[in-house]
Amino acid sequence: MTQRGYTLRFNGDQVAAELHGAAERGVLMAGEYVLGESQAVVPIDEAALSRSGTVSVDPGTLTSAISYDTPYAVRQHEEMTWRHAPGRQAKYLEQPLVQSRAQVQAIIAAQLRRALR
């Protein structure tokens, strides 16, 4: 019986870089998903608030931020006594984020799985 030698080469730095890139893409995609869900319930008067919605990613911490940038965005989000058009609401960012927890995790996990193929 002949003995065969095998060499295993593990490119750990390359794997880590690929996974970090995949995680960054996943965090961005998840943020965009939550923003889309939020757009369905954000209060609309002249649509300035809705148009100001954006997603940003911090690659160092692999976190995303979903924000609305108008002078009244925070108050509009927190003021539970204000009346809104049908289907629109206060907590227009918080509620979609909480309800999308499983989808957010699935989006990030899918990107990581793709990187490991």
Rank of each mutant, 00 (worst) to 15 (best):
H20R: 13
V42A: 14
E32K: 13
L93T: 00
K91Y: 10
E24H: 01
I44S: 09
F10V: 11
V98R: 14
M1N: 12
E24K: 12
A65P: 00
P43W: 00
V55R: 05
R114A: 12
Y92R: 02
H84S: 12
A73I: 11
R25Y: 01
F10L: 14
V57E: 00
A85V: 08
Y72R: 10
A109I: 02
A48M: 08
R75G: 01
Q111M: 00
A17I: 03
Q105D: 11
Y68T: 01
Q99N: 12
M80N: 04
A110E: 14
G31E: 00
Y72S: 07
A30Q: 02
S38T: 14
Q99K: 13
R88F: 01
P71E: 14
T2Y: 15
F10W: 13
M1W: 12
R114T: 06
Y33M: 09
Q76T: 15
R114W: 04
E18S: 11
A22W: 06
E37L: 04
A85N: 12
Q111F: 00
P86L: 15
A23L: 13
G60H: 08
M29C: 00
A102Q: 13
G21K: 06
W82N: 07
H77Y: 04
Y33F: 15
V42P: 08
Y33H: 11
Q39T: 07
A106E: 15
I44F: 04
R113W: 07
P43H: 03
V98Q: 11
E32R: 12
L62M: 10
T81G: 00
A90V: 04
H77V: 06
A90P: 06
P59N: 14
L19R: 05
V74C: 05
Y72V: 05
A23S: 08
L112R: 00
T81F: 08
T81A: 08
S50Y: 04
G60Q: 14
V55M: 09
A16G: 06
Y68W: 15
A85I: 09
E78P: 03
E78F: 09
P71S: 14
E46P: 06
M29D: 08
E24F: 05
T54Y: 10
S100K: 08
G12K: 09
A23T: 13
R114I: 00
S56N: 05
R25W: 03
L35T: 04
Q89D: 05
L35W: 02
Q105F: 07
Q103S: 02
P43K: 03
Q3A: 11
Q3P: 03
S56I: 05
A17E: 12
